[in-house]
Amino acid sequence: MGRRDIDESDFHSRPTKRGSRPRTKQRPEHSDAVTGLVTGVDRGRYTLLVKDPDDGGGDGASGEKIVTAMKARELTRTRVVVGDRVDVVGDVSGGEGSLARIVRIQERTSTLRRTADDTDPYERIVVANADQLVIVTALAQPEPRTGMIDRCVVAAYDAGMSVLLCLTKADLASPDELRALYEPLGVEVVVTQRAPSDDETDGANSAGQTAGGMILVPESVEEVRERLRGLVSVLVGHSGVGKSTLINALVPAAKRATGVVNDVTGRGRHTSTSAVALALPVAVTEGSPTDTFDGWVIDTPGVRSFGLAHVEVSHLLRAFDDLDEVAQECPRGCTHLADAPDCALDDWIEASPEDERPARAARLTSFRRLLASRTGSDA
């Protein structure tokens, strides 16, 4: 093949700043975008539930289809998390090999955050749009850590979420002490316990069934379910406290891996490796249908720490209406801790009627314990 002659039509000058077309900052409106719920995140791919226009349902099982998506370029630096409501375009058929594109994140109603420690300036978003934080804590094996519970309560109140303390393994220890610590803070407490079973089935195949031949007492599982109905609830807890076991009892189709506690270290093995949102069945009993749903359960990986560098002390105080009102009379710069001089909260206790004083004192003591966990002071 011979060499082609080159003429002036082959010359392309590089455009100058003056002659080049300016890059537009206008983005497409994506008026044809549909809304999806992020139920899972895995290495840059997002699992969404998108309403199927060909099905009139939309209850988390029927009426919605599973779509895989990636983030649009303009969202490169924006984190999309489980619980987010997003606008998606592209191939939303949900077919094998299809890939949609997330172009917008809708306004969040709540954002649960944590940091690696109390000095880390980088905030990590755990989940978005959750109504309730469920702190799963074992009463034994492993032993409960009140410091961790306190920190989770602080993070939830800072996010504007309600708190449910779920105490597991009540067959091994009494829940009374932890009830007394947290109920004065307005924290609801629910208790589950295990019962031995001859069935050595792995996973959850009947109401309350857990791995390793143990079952959760069905009545205690249903008590938890009642507290979750109609809400988006996110479960957090140390490894080994029975979080995955509880989720398998609540949502048998989840089949979350369960682990055991190390006899030497007293710690559990991480079994949940990523957050995932699961539709909560209305009931799980022998012979009952499980295709009716009322609420969402978000499982998260086990955590060993919950930093609170992002929480402002004033935000924590506002979660307690009665204490916040009294604290308005405190001198400027008051820390509200037990050693704070002239703190109006102490006067509030002294001025209370005799029959109200024990309850007020318990509430203030619990609040100061939370405050100490945030500030790093001694409780």
Rank of each mutant, 00 (worst) to 15 (best):
R3I: 11
R3P: 04
E8G: 04
S9F: 03
F11I: 11
P15H: 10
P22S: 13
P22G: 09
P28R: 15
E29V: 10
V34Q: 08
G44K: 12
L48S: 06
D55F: 06
A61N: 06
A69E: 03
M70F: 09
R73V: 13
T76V: 07
R85E: 15
D91T: 09
D91P: 01
S93N: 04
R101S: 08
R104L: 00
A116K: 06
D117K: 07
T119E: 14
P121W: 05
R151G: 10
C152N: 11
V153T: 08
M161P: 01
C166G: 05
L167Q: 06
A170Y: 08
D171N: 09
S174N: 12
D176A: 15
L178C: 03
E183R: 07
L185S: 03
P196A: 14
D199T: 10
T201S: 15
T201E: 14
A207Y: 04
Q209R: 04
A211C: 08
M214T: 10
S220R: 02
R227M: 08
L228S: 02
G230F: 02
L235R: 04
V236G: 05
G237M: 11
G240D: 02
V241S: 04
G242A: 07
S244N: 06
G268I: 01
S272W: 07
A275P: 06
A275F: 00
P281H: 02
V284G: 02
G287A: 11
G302Q: 04
E312S: 12
A319R: 03
F320L: 06
D321I: 06
E325D: 15
C334P: 00
A338E: 09
C343W: 01
L345P: 00
P358H: 07
A361D: 14
F367C: 04
F367W: 05
F367T: 01
S373W: 01
T375F: 04
